[in-house]
Amino acid sequence: MCLAIPGQVLDVYEANGARMGRVDFGGITKEVCLTFVPEAMVGDYAIVHAGFALSRVDERSALESLATFRELGLIEEELGITQPSEETAGEADTP
């Protein structure tokens, strides 16, 4: 249920009685309703669903999770169990 993706708030303004703003999703921008995330400021990331920001992304807990995950990933790599597939080798340079 519910495709929602994180985007960065570019600006904030009032329109038609709602807190609105433009949000950048990896190079494309969309006008999004920010009424439900009054704490989200320009530069913050928020999860957006159907044109509405639902939650500010908490950077600290994102970094914490990533640190835990990376640790697990690194242990794996040291054991040499990684198996890069053939097409990836030198070709997966999708920017």
Binding site: Y45, L66, F69, L72, E76, E77
Partner: peptide, 19 residues
Amino acid sequence: MKYLDEFRDSAAARGLLKE
């Protein structure tokens, strides 16, 4: 994309699978 790409990392995924 920030907060998407990092959470698709395959090495970390293999680590989690092993756990």
